[in-house]
Write a protein that binds this DNA or RNA. Structure first.
Lengths: 231, 231
DNA sequence: TCCATACTTTGATCGTAAACGAAGTGTGTT
DNA sequence: AACACACTTCGTTTACGATCAAAGTATGGA
């Protein structure tokens, strides 16, 4: 009854669940936080619907994805941000130790992409850094972030309900490690609401069925002036 | 030649390497940063030497462990801190979503243990928090930490060569998420040197062949007065 | 009511990889 | 030299899990 063993075992089960190509394709596809049906994921994973069903069942019991039943559709999405973080971490390991060149990482994905439901890539990292140097965002213990009074005012001015964002049953804000940049971008509820805003204001547009984000020329100007940065 | 696919695939290979019980036992055993020989790991993983050899070969080619050949011994250890972070991340996921009770997590491991080469558990989290509230440690962008001038003086006074620690080819300090506490403890070169100090000064002693740390009564007094906390 | 759609379950097949013992390689010791 | 020890490579067995087609269940619409 060694408990260390239990931990190992449970973790290894999780890893094994991720470590099957078809399931991995599903999981990484869901990193854009878009919920997808079983059949859609079957196409993504390149397996038959029945096989996809088995895989999704396993991912659900391992608590890597959750399912929302709506009529005859089943919408699958990642269980939570922790799952996305582990997937990102694995990408970091897979990305080679830096010396191994991965030159053909598409600039589109490097530049701006979604990580789970927030903005990653160089854009995400720049935003993150600007928010901190402008004193809008501050780190407190345990790597969580808080908005400063100035930051709260600024976000409210952008049309974000900070109070409401705090209410969400989810970590408010934290630094999420970026696999391409190896730096942090803004994660958590605040990161999610910021991406939503950027999409609504058409600062960025989302490629269909891809994690890539495209910064519009309007967005370039707007974000440049609002956050004082070159995009 | 979809590149997104490459990432998925590589990450899934890594996960699969972790997702085999025997290999997971080896990896989690190496989390205490103690290098071990092939035969020792065979015992830990509960497989024959030949099987262990194959597993270790795979872990090496996947760059999860590295090997140091010394005479007729081969010393295996984790490839780096990033690997340890992924393993901790998987533990977080395996730890159940909080609502699922896991009452039999041993207090020994909760209280104080090593995470790779730094202090984790409640002790690690307390230390981390104290260092920050005392203003010795400060967070700058990308979730990295820096020592304040006061912090540098304090660490020097403890007999730590801060300059030298900075020189190490490794991230200086950062918040490492703790699976049992779900809060951060101090990771990186500074975390490693702090653990080394605590061991040298006999503030804590290390159980042989386990990640558990025991706080000595001397250590309780010393750390209490030096960092102003209850241990 | 009946059919179409969305998805799951069942059952059978197949391939991979995990396991071990035995034999092989290399390194220290006498 | 000869032997002991640490570890790997080889060859074989075995077991598990990934796969699909076909049949089954549930929901929505005609």
């Amino acid at each position: 009854m060694d408990v260390e063993y239990q931990t190992d075992h449970a973790a290894s089960r999780i890893a094994a669940a991720i470590g099957e190509p078809a399931r991995a394709r599903m999981l990484y596809c869901l990193m854009d936080s878009h919920a997808r049906t079983s059949t859609e994921l079957a196409v993504v994973a390149d397996v038959s619907p029945s096989t996809a069903s088995v895989h999704l069942n396993r991912l659900t019991t391992e608590r890597l994805v959750k399912v929302l039943v709506q009529g005859k559709h089943r919408y699958y999405s990642l269980e939570g941000p922790e799952v996305a973080r582990v997937l990102e971490g694995l990408s970091v390991l897979a990305g080679g130790s830096g010396d191994k060149f991965v030159p053909n990482t598409p600039n589109r994905l490097r530049a701006a992409r979604t990580c789970y439901d927030h903005i990653a890539g160089t854009l995400g990292v720049s935003l993150h850094d600007r928010l901190k140097t402008m004193g809008w965002l501050t780190a407190n213990g345990d790597e969580s972030y808080e908005l400063t009074p100035a930051g709260s005012r600024a976000f409210e001015a952008l049309g974000i309900d900070v109070e409401e964002t705090h209410m969400l049953r989810r970590r408010f804000a934290f630094g999420c490690l970026d696999w391409s940049e190896r730096r942090s971008h803004l994660g958590g509820a605040l990161g999610a609401v910021l991406l939503k805003l950027a999409l609504k204001k058409k600062w960025v547009v989302q490629d269909l069925d891809s994690r890539a984000l495209r910064v519009t020329s309007f967005g370039r100007r707007e974000m440049g002036s609002r956050f004082g940065m070159e995009v």
